[in-house]
Amino acid sequence: MAWLIKKVRQNNLPVTGFMWLYAILSVYPLIWMIFYSLKNNDEIFVTNPFGFPTHLRFENYSNAWSKYNVPVYFMNSVIVAGATVIGAIVLSVMFSYAAARLQWRLRGIAHTYIMIGMFIPIQVIMIPLAILVRDFHLANTYGALIVPYIAFNLSFTSIVFYGFFRSIPNELEESACIDGASIYRTFFSIMLPIIKPALATMVIFIFLNSWNEFTMAVILITKESLKTLPLGLLFFQGQFTTDWGAMGAAMTIASLPTVLIYMLFSEQVENALTVGSAVKG
């Protein structure tokens, strides 16, 4: 008995147990979703709610894809997330370069001004934003999401780039200047290549953000043909009982891009999402 207790202590069994138990709690709902995306209603509700499907019903996926609007939602998500990534990166990298390296009187103020945006929760400005989108005739176009998404990613992205630009030694620009390169040339051929790692991180960050964004989308988009995946999937709520398998399949399809990105670049994704603490703290 004493031997057993010692053994348990050495292996930290309770701690290890807790760690794996939480891991299961964390992942199981996702695995359960993938399981039931391959089952029929009978198996989901009665015969086999927890385990691996007895018969892999891939037709759920083709049903989800063809019967419901999943391809449309998916394409919309790709368009919105893609345009947001490009727009936000271009604007913020230019702004932060000027704020960090170029010499002008108001640069400190401009930098602080943009930084304030990080502390504004989108919920708080939803009403005026909805009115603005309407007045600019953006309502029910892709612009209704893309323009606010870009604006909302500017603050955070600029601040990360700002930090990177500040850490580059002055000599680089000096030699570029002496060699007769223009400021634009210096920016494109010298500065951008240096901050490539930060660019990659922020591309992932903005992509995940805009792919999953819900609050703005639900208020600004009502037209069925413009709905992104987080909105489109709400539609299944009404038809819960009819085809659970297809619903699971649609949700799996919606999660695939972000989960895949995380699997491939887990380190960068964690960095991307946690880099904010260093800036905000």
Binding site: M94, F95, L102, G117, I125, I127, P148, L154, S155
Partner: peptide, 20 residues
Amino acid sequence: FTLPALLLYTIMVFYPIMQT
């Protein structure tokens, strides 16, 4: 370099919070 970002941010983020 700075005007596009500042303009968009002012219209879409800063002006709305004042409006609220």
